[in-house]
Every structure is written in C-alpha cells, then in structure tokens.
Design a protein around this nucleic acid. Structure first.
Lengths: 344, 344
DNA sequence: TTCAAAAATGTAATCGATTGCTCAATAGTA
DNA sequence: TACTATTGAGCAATCGATTACATTTTTGAA
C-alpha cells in the first residue's frame, strides 16, 4: 500500500499509454480535449503527483540550487537566503542550504556534493579560509552556473552580487569625521577577503580625502566576535595616543568595543563614537543603539537569484555580470553626538 | 564539451560493461581486484562523479530531507538546522530548508512540493496559523517519515522532539517567586500552539504550588515582537495593581518590556524582574542581560535527525517516539536581585 | 584429461517521465 | 470513390545507475 501512483497506473486504469498520459498532463496540443480532461480527473482522483526525480533525470535539471555560506545564524545570511527563496520558490526551485562554518575543506566537499546532486546552480559566499579555486573551476567545467554573493573571489566568467563595501566604509568614516572624530581606528576581520579589504580601503581613502593621516596602529585585526571587539578596544585605549572613534568591520566587534569602553567609563557618543557593519538586528535594539551599514541582504539574495536565472536561460552565451549594491549607513546613538536625527 | 562522464563512458573506454563498472565502484566482491583498481583509476582520471539523481530514481531514495520551519533568522531555528545538518550531512543527506513565514497555505504547499521532490523525510515545526492536518496525513499516506520538532500537533503515529515547555515555565516562575516576586505577569504568544499553552500551564502550576492566586489580568497576549512587549508592559503597569515581574514567552517580548519599564523609570531587577524564553544570543549581551530558558536547539536538531534515521531504517515497523528535552534556566541580571551567581 | 564448482562478467530490466517517430483513424477534397 | 491531410495516440528509446539472472572463464580435484 501507500505506493505512489505513476503515470503508468493512470494509463492502465484508462487503458491508454503512459505517453498519452504524460502528454495530457502537460497539455500537449496533440491530445484531444476529451482525453486530457479524463486523464486529469483521474490523476486527481488517484492522487497522482509528478515524480520530480524522474523528470530531473530525464531533463538533466533537478530544479534544485545549492546555496553555500559560512553560517545561517547571522541575520545577514539568513536574510539573503530569504531573498533567494522568494525569487526562486515561486518558479519551482528548491534551495539546498549548506554551511561551511568558515572551513575550506568543508566548502570543497559541499560544492562537490552539490554537483553530484545535480543542482542547477550554486550560489556561494566563500569561507574566510578559502584560498583555493579548484572547486570553483570544477563547477564551471560542468557548466553549472556559479554566482558569488557578498564574499567573492575573482574568477573569469563568474558572476557576482556584492555590496559596495568601499563606499560603505567611506561613508562611515566620513560620518565619523563629520562628528568631529579625528583619530579613527578600524577593526578589520580578515583582509584576505575582498569585502574586508575594500572596507579598509574605503576607510583609508576617506581619511586621506579629509586630510587625516592613516596611523597603522589604529588598524587592528578582529578575532572572535564580541570578545575580539573587547580586546581590540582595550589595545587601542592603551596606545599612547588612543583613538576617539572605532569603525568595526563587524557589528559584533562594535558591540564588544562598546562593552569595553563602557566598562572603563568612556562616554559614548560624547567622548567616543563607534560604528559597526552589517546592521544586525541587535544593533538597533540595544540600550545604546549602534550605528551600522545596511547591506540590503534581501535585495542581494533576490539579485543573486535573478542573475542565476539569466544564466540558466542563456545556456550557451557566457555571461559575467558583476553587480554591486549600494550600502546605506544607519546612523544611531553610538556615533551621533548632536541628537538631530536617528535612523531606525 | 563539459559533458558529465557516466559509467558508460568508463565502460566504453575500458571495453567492459557498465554493470561491471558500477560493481567495481561499489566494491562488489564479485569483481576482481584488478578490474576494480583499473575502473577506479579510470574513474578518477575521467573525473567521474556519481549522478545522485539516477541513483535516487532507482533506489527510491533521494537522500534529501525537507526541513520546514517558520523562519530561519531566529537563532533557535538556525541552530536546530545546524544540529540536523551535523547529524545528517556526514551520512550523505542533504537538507532542503523551507520557511513558512507562519503561513498555513505556504506550509501546505511546501510539504506538497517536498513530497513531489521525493524527500526521504520531513522534519517540521508547524506554523502558528496551521489549523489543518490534511497535509500531514498526505505525508503519512506516502510512507514518508514525518517528525515534528518544537512546535507540534498531535497526530497518531508521528514522532516528535520537543522541549519540556511546562517544566521550563515552571522553573522560571519558581525562580521569580524565589526572588521575592509575588505578582508575576505572563506574556503568551499564541496559546493555540502547544508550546505556549504548556508554558502557560507551567507558569500557572508554579503559582498554585506556591499558594499564589492566578490573576487573569496578568495574562496577556503578545503581538509582534519587541513592540508587543512594550505594549504589554504598558498595559500591565496601568493596572490598578500592577505586577512586579514579567515572564515572557519570547525573548523579544521580554526585551520590549524591559525597554518600556526603563523608559518609565522602573529599576530592574531591584523593583521588577523580567525573564524571557529561547535564550536568543542577544539576551546575554545586552547591557542588562536578560534571563531566559535555553531550549538546546542543537540537541533538538540532532535528536530529530536521529529519530528520522531510526524511522528510515525500520521501514515496516511503525514507530511513534515522543522525545522531550529538558530546559535550562539561564539566570541573568534581569531577574537576579541578589547578585550571587550569573550564568553565562 | 574431465568436469563440477567457483570466480568474473555480461544481459537486460528497472526506476518514472518525456518525446521523436510511426501508425491508425477520421476528415476533407477532387 | 479514391486519395491526401489532419488529428489522436502508441512504440520505443532515453536519462544514469543498479541488480537479478544468465553466461563465460578459471580453478582445482578426481
């Protein structure tokens, strides 16, 4: 019992061929209206459901796409996923989500597995530790569309959807300068990733454009999350000439910094400004709401999905599309000296 | 070019049969070691990758499981997913994640789609709006393992992994009473869901066991997130006899309440205690860390996955397993009057 | 040397749906 | 009436891997 009904079952019942059933269900014009109606009714009656595996095998399209990212428990990433799903689900695609936990080996395995599973495309935000390209070339070799989002690496022929991190960082830095800060430190997570390198450069350029020298001591690496932010702030404040603002490449880093600064009695934003990056939800509901850069994750997801669809549709033509989204600076209390306007 | 190599390609190259190739690759003892070695080497050389679709169609197992939940951008849910993946990925399963956004119709569609896609099982946390059972019966009818996690509904023959919400709520309430609170309000999200009903009952029982009367005015519904928490707190404080503690069924509700209470100058925890539920990360890194109930999402995910595997393995035997995990109360500043011990 | 048992491969069907090609039946035309 | 379009539906191959059931080749003992 509980056997799934196939088109053969329907065919047998109606004493026709499976081919006819298939055509009827697909509204093939070569089938008479009468037959179509009969078949469709019987299908409903027998609770027939198309087997997508068989279809996939035949057509060579699984209608599955793989989404590979470091973690899903970051609001940014889960929102990107939501964007992708909103675009792809309505047209029959399923999304297979895989986390790399920032591990290169896992990323490679994952990509390989997805290829085996015959996904129709792979949307990926590379792990922090990824130094290799071979697994991406494998994807291209198999003619499977590959799209980078947010964290990318440069490979010819691969499309990407990213945020203008440079611009975002520039805006943050300019904003801090506008607030009267002149000694602005920058916490960078891992500049071997383009996004962090770009943020760093935007920061540097803004300083330069405002005639402020860049002090290497003000540039710190950021280790693990909140704790890293604390440590970094501590180090900075122990400098002979401590900064008066921190621009952190991550919201968690910004939070950690704020926690440390408060501990040692520094008043924010009066004496010190802090800005983060990513606009994680918690930044706005802290007691001291944290300024941050919004990365439009939903839009990024949708855009990545659209790029994938374009790629799928134009099989032969090779497209390389590099889309860059505009960042929005959300100014909140942590960096707003004159309480004129607070963006929610 | 870029054609995927199949076992037929390997067979042709070695002038043997596809059957032999298949057997060799699967280490069938009926194939000589020499042939095996030769086939395997050639496979690597030709960059052969098994087509999982074909295998799935033949075996009737897609090695995919569907995970259906309201949202993935809640730490609780994304951690459950992580637990599921950790258990299932290593043995070759892929996880297809689908969000219902608390919409019954979407849930029904999703389940239907997953069935069409021939998933080997469905792990689901039902949406708040789900009142129907028909789609679950469809799953059972097709003999596809169905496992509820966290949010369940009672259906015969369906296994579930849940938290002991009753116990969690009881602990919270007892803790508040131990802190000297006697007028404890409860914010409940939607008692048509078992989890919230159970929390309510644990709360009520704890009151009763301590000889405290239950005041219906202290029981409030909780609408949208933080805002809802604020509103609820406001309403409560406008009562003739306002409470001296709030036990919120959601962390966001607790946060909203705290925000309101602070606004009107009520000191926490000195004059008022607040406890949430879910142990979302933000509860511990707020300036005023919020007490909450940890739901062991990782363990829940792993357990659900294990139950699924048991079910898959014992095809014929019908298993109905109801696992209930123990909650842990994380006591933090928001409800700790005597600073003796703070759980991190 | 002979022949059965064991070892190594091959044959062909199967999973479920699709589709190019063929064929039959009906309609239409001269 | 004879013959050709047109329409409706069947046949069989295909997608890639697996596997029950042969068949062939070796091995080894009598």
């Amino acid at each position: 019992m509980a056997k799934k009904t196939t088109i053969y079952d329907i065919a047998k019942k109606l004493d026709i061929t499976a081919a006819t059933v298939s055509r009827a269900l697909n509204d093939n014009p070569r089938i008479s209206e009468d037959t179509k109606k009969l078949v469709k009714e019987t299908a409903v009656q027998m609770n027939y459901k198309q087997n997508r595996l068989a279809l996939a095998l035949k057509s060579g399209r699984s209608k599955n796409v793989g989404v590979v990212l470091p973690y899903i428990n970051r609001n940014f990433f889960s929102s990107v996923i939501r964007g992708i799903e909103e675009e792809l689900n309505p047209i029959g695609y399923h999304v297979i989500i895989c986390q790399t936990h920032e591990d290169e080996k896992k990323e490679i395995d994952t990509v390989q597995n997805l290829l085996n599973a015959q996904v129709d495309g792979i949307l990926i935000s590379i792990s922090r530790k990824t130094k290799t390209n071979e697994h991406f070339r494998q994807v291209l070799k198999k003619n499977v569309p590959l799209i980078f989002f947010d964290r990318k690496t440069d490979i010819e022929g691969v499309s990407s959807v990213t945020l203008d991190d440079y611009e975002g960082a520039y805006k943050v830095t300019q904003h801090l300068i506008d607030q009267g800060c002149t000694k602005i430190a920058h916490l960078s997570v891992d500049r071997s990733l383009q996004i962090y390198q770009n943020r760093f450069e935007g920061y540097k350029q803004a300083l330069e454009d405002n005639g402020i020298d860049f002090y290497p001591e003000y540039l710190l690496g950021l280790k693990s999350e909140i704790e890293g932010g604390k440590e970094a702030a501590k180090k900075l404040m122990q400098l002979e000439n401590p900064p008066d603002a921190i621009f952190s490449s991550s919201d968690h880093g910004a939070l950690g910094s704020i926690q440390y600064l408060k501990e040692v009695g520094i008043r924010i934003p009066d004496d010190f400004c802090v800005v983060g990056f990513s606009n994680e939800p918690f930044t706005q509901f802290m007691e001291l709401p944290i300024s941050s850069v919004d990365q439009s994750p939903l839009l990024m997801g949708k855009t990545a999905a659209k790029v994938f669809l374009e790629q799928i549709d134009s099989k032969d033509v090779k497209i390389e599309k590099r889309m860059v989204l505009a960042p929005t600076l959300k100014i909140r209390t942590s960096s707003l000296k004159q309480p004129i306007l607070v963006t929610k």
